[in-house]
Design a protein around this nucleic acid. Structure first.
Lengths: 225, 225
DNA sequence: CGGGGGCTTGAGGCCACTCAACGATAGTGG
DNA sequence: CCACTATCGTTGAGTGGCCTCAAGCCCCCG
């Protein structure tokens, strides 16, 4: 599959712990780095290959497609995040911006793990974290209003990709809409409302730079009202 | 936590493989059986205890609650199903009907696993399966219509708890609604429509016994139209 | 028999979607 | 430098699907 993908850079690193997975005994695992241009596919749903990925730079979306054109984004992966595909791929992963990922073969990992429970534990907690995120997202998709969803999204992003209360969103309104189970118009309207309510401001002339003015009220919308 | 719960029966079995988790070397793990009356709580969200459960008889729902009273059911667990709660409980688990579960301490399991990668692999694939289910459910909650959701639900149940095309649902319309992110009225209307469209029939005088007349059309609704 | 819970059905309202127009921005080629 | 175009985002008007509220039926169980 990788032959069909833009590979600008490639390097090898001999460390498992650099990947964020600490191994007690076996530090020698091959690690590769790939770079994908904006919009390029990292892997497709039902792709047989098995890797574990870590975002180095950029952002990745994992999504499912419906026959009628609808798309559901399951998660956004930002620098530092590890995402994987146990068994067969259940999602399609795409680069949102110019993105660099590290990757490691699952098989190699499990070979190491054979003699090292720490790796297993890490792999499991990785999957559990993804599961937890999915469970919270089910609640959002099933039971929250448009405004609550957008507030929850901004709240999540504010915690994940910023130190101060200034967010620089890598993804488009379409991505956000497909993540929140809404349309782009509804997302836009909700953001506008949060702006006119004094909860956030726009920075610069692009709409992807957002400053949170009232984190408290944003959080309270997220937590429910 | 268990002191506050109805415990009608209790037994001990010394086998891990009976639980559905095959261990190559260490078959001696304590296994308990508990019975819960209809509606009783098995564990509560944020409960610290760590167990892995297997449904023996009955049915279990795992759900999250919102401050404003909304409920989202993440999954139904039927006889044979294994469900767990890595780390802290992320859900509340309740018995839908009179239910018997086997349970095993996660800690015990991981102690065994220390020397047995098969257990780790099983535990991981268990979590991965749950994750896959959650991912599919996100698609349902985010991008499907009421009719498609109900069709998908019946399709799922038809595959999980019946041999012929006769389903005996253990859960109420409220449970179904909270699973599908709908109201009971909408669920009821959708089922009625499927009935009047000749896709399903009711059996007996209760509305929980359903016979699928046209599995093909049910599946095509599920798969999207 | 009366009461209550579960389920259905109807009437009306609201929130999010649809369709459409428009402005802003970035990239392209002259 | 300026059209020209495509993409992205916002905003408005109108529709529709699901929710809300309400009534009524059926069954179970006292």
């Amino acid at each position: 599959m990788f032959v069909s993908v833009t590979t600008d850079q490639r390097s090898r690193i001999n460390s498992l712990s650099e990947f964020g997975i600490s191994s007690g005994s076996n530090p020698i695992v091959s690690l590769s780095e790939f770079t994908y241009k904006k919009g390029k596919i990292i892997y497709i749903e039902s792709d047989p290959a098995e890797y574990v990925y870590q975002v180095r730079k950029g952002a990745v979306r994992t999504c499912k497609l419906l026959p009628d054109g609808w798309r559901q984004i399951g998660a956004f992966h930002l620098p530092g995040d590890i995402f994987e595909n146990g068994g067969a791929h259940r999602f399609t992963a795409e680069a949102i911006t110019h993105t660099t990922v590290r990757l490691i073969r699952r098989l190699h990992l499990e070979t190491v793990a054979e003699t090292d429970a720490v790796v297993w534990r890490t792999l499991l907690s990785l999957t559990t974290n993804n599961l937890q995120h999915a469970e919270n997202h089910m609640l959002l998709l099933g039971r929250k209003t448009a405004l609550q969803r957008v507030a929850a999204f901004l709240h999540e992003m504010n915690e994940r990709l910023t130190a101060a209360d200034v967010i620089s969103l890598p993804m488009s309104r379409r991505d956000i809409a497909d993540y929140l189970g809404l349309t782009i118009e509804t997302v836009s309207r909700a953001v506008s409302q949060l702006h006119s309510d004094g909860i956030l401001d726009f920075i610069g002339n692009t709409q992807r730079e957002i400053m949170i003015r009232d984190r408290q009220r944003l959080a309270s919308l997220d937590m429910q009202s």
